[in-house]
Write a protein that binds this DNA or RNA. Structure first.
Lengths: 237, 237
DNA sequence: CGACTTGTCAAACATGCGTTTGAGATTCTG
DNA sequence: CAGAATCTCAAACGCATGTTTGACAAGTCG
């Protein structure tokens, strides 16, 4: 079978209308339907999160998933397609699990800020069984941008940042201006993200970021006070 | 010549006491002494800063330096040794160019904080001809830690962080405690570093970090107010 | 001069990578 | 049952990488 453009072989025989849908998959009438495919996505998520795209090799992924190397091509078409599948899956999981805190849902902007920080930090830092890899995947994406980064920013990060800017706008009050708000959003984002992807350095300094619920909450509390005060300070300049 | 442990062939003939010194190199009596070696370090610095260690290939470096691939082994022993040479060279250059601002040199802790931020941000962000790659190299090292990271933290980053902790201690006054100070140091470091290594994302958001002197100064001003106010806020908790 | 050091070079080596092949099981379907 | 679809597998392909080789020119020095 020589292919110019790769087509999922499992879908070749399906009617177009059926194949066009992408959520329910009607080909599950095997003994362990989609078992290898699922295992690959799970293992690849962990390995991509741990090492980044480039350094997680197809052979490693397949070995840990007890699958043949050719399974990646068969089920996804390529390593990069598998990566996108993992990213989108994490994104979906994230979206369905917890909504982004919105300014309008809180009495005071500082409360909204605290909620926003808790949301983002849990997402980035928390490690627990069956927890999504999305946060670490995104942190990896910052380091070694792949072609998927642009989509990732647009789909996942932009909505979160937009909500942050609303909150900061409320905190700035009269002094609100696009440039100032963007600068402060950079600050807040940096403070959150650095705790995940600066982890190797912070660990060597002897001050590793928290990975459990109470630790993350405490960090969010401190950051909320810190950012609120800093924002107020920049209001009067 | 089969070697268990590689030894710089140029130093094999030198007396030990001479070879032990590492700054002046007394073997420069060729037509263009050390020319290839110097070119390699220069080109490698630029390429490592641009792409990181893994993605800057020996072949690329040598091609740009108009040198043979074997030159890396001959002059440095391995790619990693060349990398360490580049890192240490940048470190030396940094150290000699500008001293770390010290708390004791300023009347008010906030002035010291402002100076510290200016120092670090210039180091990380500024792009100008003949500017050191050290900042970008360090940012790269955060992303894909190599074996050199531990040394880098100890030699280069630790002294900078220590001075920051002194400044923060002064700002905290009575409320100073090791944990609080370390947390705030993480905040300040994150705010600085994120502007360099979060660059790909910030650019996609439409708010790229500054790269010129006035922009960096403005950022340092804003960050100084921001951090000072945030620190004061965390004093009363 | 003649031995030795220094530096450069083209070519090959060894390894790891993503991908592809073609054959062979297993299961579904008419 | 016969044939098609689904899935797995060992092996190889083609490529890029860091490293190593052995030869060779040019300079140094006794």
């Amino acid at each position: 079978m020589r292919l110019r453009f790769w087509v999922d072989p499992r879908r070749l025989a399906l009617p177009v209308t059926e194949a066009a849908r992408d959520d329910p998959d009607p080909r599950d009438h095997r003994a362990a339907p989609g078992a290898t495919r699922d295992r690959l996505i799970r293992v690849a998520g962990a390995l991509f999160a741990e090492r980044g795209f480039a350094r997680a090799s197809v052979r490693d992924i397949c070995a840990r998933a007890a699958a043949n190397v050719a399974a990646v091509r068969y089920h996804f078409g390529s390593k990069e397609a598998l990566y996108r599948e993992v990213l989108l899956g994490s994104h979906r999981e994230l979206r369905d699990r917890e909504p982004i805190p919105r300014l309008a849902d809180f009495r005071r902007p500082t409360d909204a800020l605290r909620a926003w920080l808790g949301f983002v930090l849990r997402f980035l830092l928390l490690r627990r069984p069956a927890h999504s890899y999305a946060g670490q995947l995104i942190a990896r994406e910052l380091e070694q941008p792949t072609a998927a980064l642009t989509d990732l920013v647009r789909l996942v990060m932009q909505p979160v940042r937009t909500e942050l800017e609303h909150i900061l706008g409320a905190l700035l009050g009269d002094a609100d201006s696009p440039a100032r708000r963007a600068q402060l959003a950079n600050f807040a984002l940096g403070l959150c993200v650095f705790h995940e992807f600066g982890r190797p350095v912070l660990e060597r300094f002897g001050h590793p970021p928290p990975t459990d619920e109470p630790g993350v909450d405490a960090l969010a509390d401190a950051l909320a006070s810190f950012i609120a005060a800093g924002t107020r300070a920049l209001r009067h300049r």
